[in-house]
Amino acid sequence: MALLRLEKVAVRFGERAALDAVDLEVAEHEIVCVLGPSGSGKSTLLRVVAGLQHTDAGRVLLAGRDQSGVPTHRRGVGLMFQDHQLFPQRDVAGNVAFGLRMRRTGRAETARTVAGLLDLVGLPGAQRRSIAALSGGEQQRVALARALAPQPRLLMLDEPLGQLDRGLRERLVVELRDLFGRLGTTVLAVTHDQGEAFALADRVVVMRDGRIAQAGTPLEVWRRPASEFVARFLGFDNVVEATVDGECADTVWGKVPVPSGSRQGACRLLVRPAGVRLVPETEGLPCTVTGRTFRGDHVVLMLRPADGPVLEAACGLHGAPAAGDRVGVAFDVADVVVLDDAGTGKG
């Protein structure tokens, strides 16, 4: 049985639907990441589960029990707020122990738990420090310890690493995943950062305008974005109108090979930048290099064909053409995806 189950949950803010008939399940010990641009309703989703947001329709079930009418403080879930919301008038230990105090945990046990959690999040001995004296990363860790302390059956994280600098973020993602795995915590996190979601989650749910656009393992979503919206949200911009016929599609870029068994007829086609291969100008689609962005271990090229949208290509550092060069382009079938939707704009 799923630990958390949302059935047709809807929330409206005036005319706008923040959540529109959302169905979602989170199994015990699973880490699910909700991914979406700002305003897609992901934070509202967490607030609904926590009981902080009134729903207009649908049901929220925790361990099979309908939560309507159950106030926030009796739901037994944890929520780590985007900006932490640490209690400014309490010190680190006071913050971490708060949930335990609400559960009337004994003094000695509380102190032991707090010390253990501070060790766990990498802030040993920080009990007496004041909140104002903590850096952003340290506040993050205290907020995490505070959310973990009462051992919630479901831990929810709102943009857990949003305010941290890149290096710290990448390190913390790995630490968090490792930690949740060890504790067996069930986690529902939201983020707008795909890298974070893919690194953290067992399962990714992409949201758009209050609806679920796609759900699946990180690999599935990465390999087969369901729609142009998801593809573009993941940073793939090589999308083109196509007509599939057999194992080949007709596009303004010329013939593009598609995986066998693809849906036939008019559709939209995604070619991941890795599948855009450079060949001599005479052999493939002739393009002009209009831009070159250095990305560390590879270079991203912007290629303008005679007709149709600009192409993005990833290529190795050595032998990358310079801006203004003329090149030819061929497509690798492994990086071509036939998108499901009939083309609903750019989202």
């Binding site: 902080l52 106030p71 926030t72 403080h73 929520l79 707020f81 919301q85 559960r103 505070r146 009462p150």
Partner: peptide, 11 residues
Amino acid sequence: RLREAAAVLGA
């Protein structure tokens, strides 16, 4: 949201 944080923690 400070009050909400307290509520989520069981207050």
